[in-house]
Structure formats: structure tokens, C-alpha cells
Design a protein around this nucleic acid. Structure first.
Lengths: 344, 344
DNA sequence: GGTTAGCACTCTGGCAACAAGAGTGCTAAC
DNA sequence: GTTAGCACTCTTGTTGCCAGAGTGCTAACC
């Protein structure tokens, strides 16, 4: 469909445009690159490329800029793969070094690295949906009138809270009740635990049901812990270095969009496929970012989805660079997370 | 020092400037307000106020704008106190309604409310520095080869982790060791727990010291939990509606500053005094925000510092409004937090 | 037939000149 | 002490103009 020369010219235009942010003219191409072609020839080819939809002209007698279709072709088949340099690898490792341990910090750092290296906005969404089963509750002494209740699931998620005991209730009573609860619920999916069941068990031992609200709270916590869905943003300040955002209104629009967690989460959908996925300009479903591109990858550990991270920026984006960083991070996170997955 | 008429004029200028963002001229004042004074008279007074340092002139033949000193006088003695309307109260309560429970969510919501109502950037910093003492560790069964270690402090902070047991080590061994550790450490400040002590105890029972790294990790977690220090930001998008930030570079400068958690935390220092504190323009120590004002209040619960929240915006800020919202939030949070303080 | 030089045409961006508007400061009169 | 009048200053928006860059087309060239 496109002969090699057209492809080459398209590639050069896109790459030049990515680095200069100015419409590219035929003369600039012939001057900057040793193609052995005169501006006139290149002009003809560019004209063809425009008709085919790969290029666009902001106005007559300006150079041309890539269209979404042009970028698409570029990322799909023209782009020269890059690799992160050793320097950058070292940098990344240093960044993580201090942060290993706390999962939250790891993701926060990931967002930071991603935005710093891509000079764009980064979004990291962590997701886990671990169906979990009740294993047991246990009561630990704290002081007179107060005990700690610990709930453990089959998978080892642990959550606790402090319970203020009513008069005349002692830890021994609680232990007795714990046993009853455990008998009744052990092995059940935690989402199936009902208030009524708990009330019932509770009343068998105490007059009243003061326990159940504590238990329900803690169960909610467990579910929350199992179903983490957080968002980390980074690099919003990079927007301003991009000429496409010299218009304040566009920055505002984008930033207020990014403040809506729900919206952002919708944008960062879990990809079915593995590997890096790219959405360019109007390919985006969300109106606020139709002149942006998004590069995203979903990250899995042992087959389970852990999260998705993305770089969001103008369509004029250093795709090769971003992809290389994403790839590297994906590998690197594999190692980092494998080491910390037991903890939360 | 300032007669009543000067004060009145200064107040009107400041209030007009706050709402219009344009330098205020003598004619505008005499036209908009029924002072019974001609522009010329007002002009003379304004000239005086400028000499005294309360007003500034962007250039000859523009109107005048308040100086930092002018704002200072205004907030200290001219400002007419506002109260949040019932409508707003209801709004705030609705916002919190859904969020009660999780402390993090409460603060996140606080930031959101603060920025939405003040139409400025809000910063919420939570701080707690609870010195805590070791109480005991306890081991709970999970599955063959894995147990849960729970650490409890005197104040009831609880933290846990999963331990992968080496071959030939069983939960009974761990319980034995727990006892030894508890004997040795119970009542000690958690910060005084040393690696050497743990290694020693561990070696008395096991060959090797596989336990200590787990324990140290968990102790670090406890300390982290006791010394929470988080930051919630909101409303950065509001910047763009402010004419003083129509210059992209200033927005960039401010936003990249806000991305530095450390810096922001330095800015949001815990106030000694209670009540709302205001820092205006050049009174700020940080160079990036010297044309901004910050209104902040430190929030305490039972005498203990819980956090500080702040509104950051251009010196031309609706101080009365911001102060009223802060005051109300402070009261309201008292109630919300008192209800959730047991949990984390 | 593909490639290239030449040329007329078009559009943007920057610059200078200009007028309108707003505000001040000063003086003199009330 | 207050006010009207007036000259002066500074900003802002508009207009017109020119240079620069790029295109499209035609005709010549290999």
C-alpha cells in the first residue's frame, strides 16, 4: 500500500515533528536528512500521504503534521524500538531502592519514574480482586474493657480492630463467641457474611448484638484490603513544557479531568492483552483526551492482575522512549513485587 | 494611625480587588460605593495609603492594588466575619456522609471540600506522633509452614505479617519464642528495640536468626502507623480560573512545587497556636509562593495534633470565606473524627 | 515516468504605529 | 478639608505591513 520511500518519509516527518513540535515542511526534511531527494519530490510524496490520511495540514502553506492514522502506522510498523540505557536502568533502580517494602510506595515511585522518564503524565492504577474466605476471628487482650479482634482469611489477609467491651463482658466471653462464629463461618466467602447471621450468633451469648457492628466494619476492611483499587498520578507539571498545552484552557480541562478519580479509573481500563497498548488521539473514547495519546500496560503477577500503568500526553509523544521505559518497568516490577507480595 | 475613613476606603479597595482582580481606581470606588466623597478626595486618601505601604501601583496611571501589608491589616482588623450558609453546611455534611469510617477518606474529602468551597488549592496534612510501647507479639496459625505474627502496643496499635517458617519449625516453637520476646520487651518503647537484642533471643531458641528481620519489619510498620504523616491535595485545577495564574510559567512553578511532598510538608508546618493562621505573600518563607497567601489551621483532638489543613491561593483571596469554611470544618471534623478515632 | 527547478500564491507571526480608555497628580477654586 | 478641571502617562486592542516558510503547479530534464 505504501512504498518504502513513502514510509521512510512519513517516519522522518513524524520523528521530526515529535522532537520539534512544529509542522514539518518538505524543505526541512530534505535539508535535515540525506535522502537524495529534492524538496519538490518530497512535496509530492507528502501530498500523497495527506490524501491517504496520514498527514494533516494545519493550514495551507504550513508544513504538515501527522494525523492519528499516521501515528498509528508509525507505532505499529515504523517505530524503531529503543532500549533504556544503562544509566537510566541505574536511575530507576536507585529510585526504587529506598521504597521497596511498602506496596503503596512502590506504586507511587513507579508513577514518579514513569512521568520523569517520559516527561508526561503518568497514571498508575492498582487493582486486585482477591476473593477471600473467612478463616477465623481471634481475640487478643489489650487492657481492662478493651480487646483486639483479629480476623484472618484463608489467604492470610489480616485485619483488626479494638473493641470496647460492655460492662460484665470479659475476654473469656469473647473467646467463647469467637469459637461459635468460627464454627459457623469458617470457609465461607467473606462476601457472604450477613448481618443477620452475626446478630443471631451474638444474641446466643450476649443479650444484644453489640459485636456485630464491629465485625461488619472489620469485614468491610478486609474486603477493601482484598479489593484494592488505588490511583497514583505523577508529572502533571510536565504538561506545561508541552507546546500543545500552552493554551491554559486545555490544561485546565485535562487537570480537572484527572482530579476525578472515577473518570481516570474508567480511562485506565484493564487490558485483556498483555504488553503495551497504545491509544492515539481520537481513538480515545473520552472526549477530554482526544488530542492525547495514552500508552498503557497491564501488569500481572502469577496470572493475577496487579495493576495498570499508563503514560498520558499529547499525541506528539516519544512513543519509542515511553514503550521502552514501560517494558523495562514491567520487568523490573516483576522482581520488586515478587519480593513484597506477602505484605501489604 | 489610620483614621476611619482611610480604613473604610482600604477595605473597599481590597474587597473590590478581591472580586474583580483588576487594579482599583478612585473613580470606581466613588461610583460603586455610596461614600459621599468625590473621586478626587478618594484619590488623595489612596495616595496616602500608598505612601503608608498599604497599597501599590502596578504602574503610574493604573488603579491600585493592595500590598501584603494592606492585606495584613485587612485580615487582622477590617475583615467582616462570614458564616457558612446553611446550604453549604448541608453540602459539607453530604460530602462527608459517604466517607465516614476510613480516616484516609475523611481527609481526602476534607481536601476536596476545602478546595471546592474556597475555589483554591487545598492541602491537608495528617500528622500523628504517638510514642508507643511494645506490649506483646502473638502468633496465629495460618497453614502448614506459615503463621501470622501480630504485634500489639500498649496503645492498641496492631500490626501483623505473615511468616514463612523454615523446615522443622512449628507454631509451638514460635509461641515459645514469643513468650521470651514478650518477657524481654514488654513495656519498652518500641523505638528502643534493637536488632541485637532480637538476634540474641532468637538464637536462644533457633539456630540462626530468621525471625528478626520479620520482627524489625513489623516494628517499622508499627512506627509508621503511629507516626502517620500524609498529604492530601485538592483543587489544583482552580488555579487556572485565577487571572494571576494566566501566566503558564507560574502555574508550572507552583504545580511542580506541589509535587514535592517534602517541600509541601515543610510549608504546612504545625501551628503552635490554635485557630486559623494566615500568611500573606512575602510573609511566606518559601520563594515559590511569595505571591500567594496561605490560610491554615492545625487540628487537634484531645490535645493531640491530628493534622493541619490549609488553603493556598493568590494573595487576592476571599479570606472571609476561607476562614469561615475552615472554622466550620474544624468544628465538624471534631465530631467526625471523634467517631472514628479508634480505627485506622 | 519519475525527478527537479522555478515561480506565483498563501498563510502566519512579529513589529510598529495609533487611538481609546482609564487613572493619576496637580492646581486652583469652593 | 473638599472638589472640579485638566494635562499627562501608561496599558490595551487594532490595524497595517513585511519577512519567512511552505505549498502547488508547470515545464523542463534524465
Amino acid at each position: 500500500m505504501l512504498n518504502d520511500r513513502k514510509k521512510k518519509i512519513l517516519q522522518l516527518i513524524i520523528e521530526d515533528y515529535i522532537s520539534t513540535a512544529e509542522p514539518i515542511g518538505s524543505r526541512a526534511i530534505s535539508r535535515r536528512h540525506e535522502l537524495g531527494l529534492s524538496p519538490a519530490t518530497i512535496r509530492n510524496e507528502m501530498s500523497d500521504l495527506e490524501v491517504m490520511g496520514y498527514l494533516e495540514q494545519p493550514h495551507t502553506s504550513a508544513g504538515r503534521v501527522p494525523s492519528a492514522l499516521g501515528y498509528r502506522l508509525y507505532v505499529d510498523s515504523l517505530l524503531a524500538p529503543e532500549k533504556v540505557t544503562e544509566n537510566e536502568e541505574e536511575l530507576i533502580q536507585n529510585w526504587f531502592q529506598a521504597k521497596a517494602g511498602r506496596l503503596d510506595e512502590v506504586f507511587r515511585t513507579t508513577a514518579k519514574i514513569l512521568s520523569n522518564m517520559s516527561r508526561n503524565i503518568s497514571i498508575v492504577r492498582t487493582q486486585r480482586e482477591a476473593p477471600c474466605q473467612f478463616k477465623y476471628v481471634k481475640f487478643l487482650p489489650l487492657e481492662a474493657g478493651r480487646v483486639i479482634m483479629v480476623l484472618v482469611t484463608e489467604t492470610g489477609i489480616t485485619e483488626n480492630c479494638i473493641i470496647n467491651l460492655p460492662e460484665e463482658v470479659y475476654i473469656e466471653d469473647m473467646e467463647r463467641m469467637g469459637e461459635r462464629i468460627n464454627n459457623k463461618l469458617s470457609g465461607q466467602p467473606i462476601s457472604a457474611v450477613k448481618k443477620e447471621t452475626l446478630d443471631e450468633v451474638c444474641r446466643e451469648i450476649f443479650t444484644g448484638d453489640f459485636m456485630t457492628s464491629y465485625l461488619l466494619d472489620i469485614i468491610a476492611d478486609v474486603q477493601l484490603q482484598g479489593r484494592s483499587d488505588k490511583l497514583f498520578l505523577g508529572g502533571t507539571a510536565h504538561l506545561f513544557s508541552q507546546p500543545e498545552f500552552k493554551d491554559v484552557d486545555r490544561v485546565r480541562e485535562l487537570l480537572s479531568m484527572l482530579e476525578e478519580e472515577g473518570l481516570v479509573k474508567d480511562m485506565i481500563k484493564v487490558g485483556e492483552e498483555s504488553g503495551v497498548q497504545i491509544t492515539i488521539g481520537s481513538e480515545n473514547k473520552f472526549s477530554g483526551i482526544q488530542n492525547c495519546s495514552m500508552v498503557q500496560a497491564t501488569y500481572r503477577l502469577n496470572g493475577q492482575i496487579v495493576g495498570t500503568f499508563a503514560v498520558l500526553g499529547p499525541t506528539r509523544m516519544k512513543y519509542a522512549k515511553v514503550i521502552s521505559v514501560m517494558d523495562y518497568l514491567q520487568q523490573y516490577l516483576q522482581a520488586v513485587l515478587a519480593g513484597t507480595q506477602d505484605r501489604n
